[in-house]
Nucleic acid binder design. Structure first.
Length: 489
DNA sequence: AGCTCTACAGAGGACAGATC
DNA sequence: GATCTGTCCTCTGTAGAGCT
């Protein structure tokens, strides 16, 4: 069996060049074989009777040669046939494999769809592990835990473990990456096997260990964790990620924002010892939940980072920025003028249309780009949870204020990057931009309290523009005029 | 030591061109 | 027209550098 093409560094599947070359080489080889076969055939025909009549001895030698050639030819044909047979078998095997893979994929999709529908479905999935797999997993994990206890750490070993872990930082990379590969695959397989073995709902066989598997890097890896820990953290992530757009884009203002969510899911799943550990104030237990929180908080970071990246590409043209134009940048950022339609003229009075907050096309573009670029994108996945602020029109959903404020904050950060030359994309840190986020939220709150209809028109209007036909068209935001906005800026 | 951010890696889906 | 193959893109997850 041929090994699958090795992927190298980089995002793209990197088998292209190698495969191309391999494909070309095969073609060249084929044509060379053909040429050789043709040449052999021709040569064979020419070595005829003329030679025989001239010199018997030569003829004998020739015949000998001929026989040799034929034998060689025959061997070649045999070899080729064997090779063809081999290739055919390989192809059949590959086909069978692809079929199995497709079946597995469709099962996975089914499971994933089920998973999206409700978290109850996840319960089924999580609890429906095949007995055999669980045993194998438990065995594997025990081995790993033993290893990590000896060489690295589990948090059950407490802080002492972390110092060991620090020593272990220099461990060979293969260890972690192979563990990652194995574990990632393992969880996917769990999903697949789960779809098949719904009947085996039995938690008694599950590995009850709730220690954190941690090899001493900055945070524990999600997929390395024991099933119970994995399940609780996974659910915590699933709850925290949408909340970034629905409720608060900067929850990590409180470093342990995921802590209550962890407790909630541990309790819901009935993991008494884990709930106890999460609620405990002991130093080792605090360390335990802090470590678990870091897994969730990284996901939140990633979402924000993506939004900032989307904005970086656009602000230059939208706001007509030049690198090092600190005067314009300062003006745009002061009082968050950039959220309003404006007219900036050098050495003249700049004007801002205060009635049209967030009525700049970049907001719609950035929301689209960051959250709704594809039917499968994050925004579409959480769209069912969007609500309406207008009690009279509950069906007219709105873009959540947190989502709009996050985009606005990312735009602020991107504009600020142009303040100094040379251009350098700054970091989108919580500490640096939390005040901007709060300022944006305050503006939205003011609109909401001052003119609910305008607030609804703004956010539902954005929703309509982005989501399209699913929503009813809504009047333009031109009547938005919030007198009280100014004193909050 | 812990936090934050970025880059990298792997898997799977989408799509276009090639081939049958 | 159906199927196959190669390539690109996106998403999820992880490692590690740099900073506090």
């Amino acid at each position: 069996m041929q090994a699958p093409p090795v992927r190298k560094k980089g995002k793209k599947a990197n088998f292209s060049e190698d495969d191309k070359r391999r494909g070309k080489a095969n073609k060249v080889k084929e044509s060379e074989d053909k040429r050789r076969a043709r040449a052999q055939g021709e040569g064979h025909g020419r070595s005829g009777e003329k030679e025989r009549s001239r010199q018997r001895s030569e003829q004998q030698a020739h015949e000998l040669e001929k026989r040799e050639k034929e034998r060689g030819k025959h061997e070649q044909v045999c070899k080729r046939r064997a090779h063809e047979e081999e290739r055919r078998e390989e192809k059949e095997k590959e086909k069978a494999k692809a079929k199995a893979k497709a079946e597995e994929r469709s099962r996975n999709q089914h499971v994933r769809k089920r998973d999206d529908k409700s978290s109850d479905a996840e319960d089924e999935r999580d609890h429906g592990r095949a007995k055999e797999q669980e045993k194998a997993k438990a065995k594997e994990r025990n081995q790993r835990t033993t290893h990590s206890r000896g060489a690295s750490s589990t948090v059950s070993a407490g802080r002492a473990g972390s110092s060991n872990a620090a020593k272990e930082r220099g461990r060979p990379k293969e260890r972690s990456s192979s563990a990652r590969k194995g574990s990632t695959r393992r969880h996917i397989d769990e999903d697949a096997s789960d779809a098949l073995s719904k009947s085996s709902d039995n938690d008694n066989d599950e590995d009850p260990c709730i220690d954190i598997i941690w090899y001493g890097s900055n945070r524990p890896n999600l997929t390395d964790q024991h099933p119970r820990v994995y399940r609780v953290v996974r659910r915590t992530i699933r709850e925290c990620e949408p909340n970034v757009c629905l409720l608060n884009a900067f929850p990590d203002e409180d470093g342990n924002f995921a802590h209550p969510v962890l407790i909630k899911h541990a309790t819901a799943l009935g993991y008494v010892d884990m709930t106890k550990k999460l609620k405990s104030n002991k130093e080792t237990d605090e360390f335990y939940h802090r470590k678990l929180c870091t897994i969730a908080s990284q996901r939140v970071n990633l979402i924000r980072g993506k939004v900032k990246k989307a904005c970086q590409r656009q602000v230059k043209t939208v706001y007509g920025l030049a690198v090092g134009d600190s005067e314009k940048v300062s003006w745009l950022l002061d009082g968050i003028a950039y959220i309003f339609p404006h007219n900036y003229q050098v050495l003249k009075n700049h004007t801002v249309v205060g009635e049209e907050a967030f009525n700049v096309p970049i907001f719609e573009d950035m929301l689209s780009d960051a959250f709704f670029s594809k039917k499968n994108s994050f925004g579409f996945r959480i769209m069912s949870r969007f609500t309406s602020s207008d009690p009279e029109k509950p069906e007219e959903k709105e873009i959540p204020a947190a989502m709009l404020a996050l985009v606005s904050t990312a735009i602020y950060a991107s504009i600020e990057d142009y303040k100094h030359a040379p251009y350098e994309a700054g970091k989108f840190e919580v500490n640096s931009y939390l005040h901007v986020y709060k300022q944006n939220i305050a503006v939205l709150d003011d609109i909401k309290t001052g003119n609910l209809k305008a607030y609804h028109a703004l956010l539902h209007g954005l929703y309509t523009c982005i989501v399209g036909d699913n929503a009813r068209p809504v009047s333009k935001k031109t009547y938005l005029n919030v007198a009280g906005m100014a004193h909050h800026q």
